[in-house]
């Protein structure tokens, strides 16, 4: 049992909280701008590398680099929106999707040009951990990642629930034409969405880098789980996205738990973790496209 918890369930929750940071942005953007943002994973990568530069330049811990990385994430998000998405506000969503696919590759190539293609890590050596109970060890980094993710999610929640702009964001995600009729500054809401999506993605990238390692395709490889979480939770439903992310994270880790079959063979080779997210997503899209929390369907 402890093995299940230490090596599968808990890491699943960690992974889930990292996904949640990305999936909130995907869900909000899908709800407000009406398109699947294929470059969202690469925003994560960008955030991770900005932090990497801070870490190597000033010899600080990646946690200290979070503010700089958030600033970078916001800056690049707003720039991308202005140059590559804004001209298509009135176009068919397909054009936006193609554009975001292009942005994804452009972002990745920029990262490859400036930071190279090798794997990088924030720290080397064994990561310290503490004993919580007998046979149950938790890496200290995992505690920080979880605390960090949950505080950011909570802050986002407060923003969406209590501020005028946050409510307007949810309103626009519900119905953008009505939002316009109501007098909501839709462009301002879009900018705010990028600020939130961009900063959460940047932090998600850092946490992913701490948990694993950095590579130019690290974010792109998370795209399926991010979409799966957003769709599972219901498009345009940030709270749903959080729940969806947790489910996906735990399901991915559990898929390689050997205890189920009793023969010490994993249910599924760990190499196919992403397949789990995809499977859940396709089943959801086909049988319940509005997600678990009644999201929008386009």
């Amino acid at each position: 049992m402890t093995e299940l918890f230490t090596y599968y369930l808990f890491p699943g929750l960690i992974l889930g909280s990292i996904y949640a940071l990305g999936a909130i942005g995907v869900s909000l953007l899908f709800g407000i701008l009406r398109f699947a943002h294929f470059a969202h994973g690469d925003l994560m990568t960008f955030g991770a590398y900005v932090a990497f530069s801070m870490v190597t330049l000033f010899n600080i811990s990646p946690y200290m680099a979070i503010p700089a990385s958030i600033v970078g994430g916001i800056g690049i998000s707003i720039l991308i929106d202005k140059v590559c998405y804004r001209p298509f506000r009135q176009s068919k969503t397909i054009v936006l999707v193609i554009s975001s696919l292009g942005v994804s590759l452009m972002l990745r190539s920029i990262i490859q040009i400036f930071w190279g293609v090798d794997y990088e890590v924030y720290f080397s050596g064994i990561q310290p951990s503490i004993d919580v109970a007998e046979d149950f060890r938790i890496k200290i980094h995992h505690i920080w990642i979880m605390l960090g993710s949950f505080s950011l999610i909570f802050l986002t929640h407060l923003f969406l629930k209590n501020t005028k702009l946050g409510k307007a964001m949810r309103a626009m995600s519900d119905d953008s034409e009505l939002a316009l009729i109501t007098g909501i500054h839709t462009e301002r809401v879009i900018t705010a969405t990028w600020i939130i999506g961009g900063s959460l993605a940047a932090v998600a990238g850092i946490f992913l880098g701490i948990d694993t390692q950095l590579s130019p395709s690290m974010g792109w490889d998370q795209l399926l789980p991010l979409f799966a979480a957003a769709i599972l939770g219901g498009i345009g439903r940030p709270y749903g996205a959080i729940a969806g992310a947790m489910i996906i994270g735990v399901a991915e880790e559990l898929s390689s738990y050997p205890g189920f079959l009793g023969e010490n063979a994993p249910l599924l080779s760990p190499a196919y973790k992403t397949g789990v997210a995809f499977f859940i997503m396709v089943v959801m899209l086909i049988f319940k496209p509005t997600g678990l929390f009644r999201g929008r369907q386009f």
């Binding site: 397909i94 795209l223 399926l224 992403t274 396709v282 899209l285």
Partner: peptide, 25 residues
């Protein structure tokens, strides 16, 4: 194919990514 627009896009790219894993593994 019963999926439309963006959703079909997500499904097709997902399948392609999984195929990529298969070819590698």
């Amino acid at each position: 194919l019963r999926l439309r627009g963006d959703y079909l896009a997500i499904a097709t790219i997902g399948l392609a990514e999984i195929l990529r894993l298969i070819l590698k593994n």
